[in-house]
Amino acid sequence: MTKNRILSHLDELEYESIYVIREVAAQFERPVLLFSGGKDSIIMTHLAMKAFWPAKLPFPLLHIDTGHNFIETMVYRDNMVKKLGASLIVGSVQESINNGRVVEERGPMASRNLLQTTTLLDTLEKYKFDAAMGGGRRDEEKARAKERFFSHRDEFGQWDPKNQRPELWNIFNGRKNQGEHFRVFPISNWTEMDVWQYILKENIELPEIYFTHQREVFNRDGVWLAKAPFMTLKDGETFEVKTVRCRTIGDISCTGLTLSEANSLEEIIAEIAATRVTERGGRADDMRSEAAMEDRKKEGYF
């Protein structure tokens, strides 16, 4: 705290996010916090804990489980839920497949990433959640740069980017009709660098896969992907052991790994400061087309 009462950028971002999270708890009847085990949802959970301390979180966590997770993420998730005394709901993509709600993609490029949308919307409807908070950031992807903090979804869970509500000052309009819901992005204004600096400043524990380790991987179109039972090789691809870490965590089928020796938060921050590729540059799901993210978001994706 300085005498001239100017906040640091991390403090200002934190106060803004806490304000948004409290606004969600105040304006909605059944909010939920989407938790993926990735760093963005980890700091979201941390901010929510700070927002309501000394009370516990006034909403549950929701994990949409593709069944294709890194084991480290699941271990981390269960430990964290226990530590916070939070309640966890799991929406299973495997169950959606078993129930015939979605059909599994086939071939070597198959991913359950798209299927998650159906599971997410079904789970929101089942529990009658009216606001789902996520860790989306505007610096991640160009379609997200136009996203509101409070993003309205119609009764089909769809986003209408050309018809968004104006959002001014810090006044958020969460009014809606029956059956509609909101997606809320309290860390909209954070950049990847802010997230890492905040993790360092707050000394937040992360899943081990964010740090350097040896792993069996293969290279597809310039992206390193992890070996897993459900990943099939194409002609010419082979498994090899590399020293890698995750820069972003999605499900295994679409998470590109970075060749890296960074073993501490300071080393990771230095690595990001020097890097010339965005964190989603390794996400196979974004490379499908120029508007891949916008199209997925319109359908109700995270």
């Binding site: 136009k146 980017p161 508007a291």
Partner: peptide, 30 residues
């Protein structure tokens, strides 16, 4: 770079507020 929506790129216009981020050694900017 800033026109993120398909309609904006197709029509070559900006129709909404876009938020961009950068930092210098002295400040962070939105």
């Amino acid at each position: 770079l800033t026109d993120g929506l398909r309609a904006e790129r197709e029509q070559g216009i900006t129709i909404d507020v876009a938020y961009r981020y950068f930092a210098t050694p002295k400040r962070k900017f939105i």
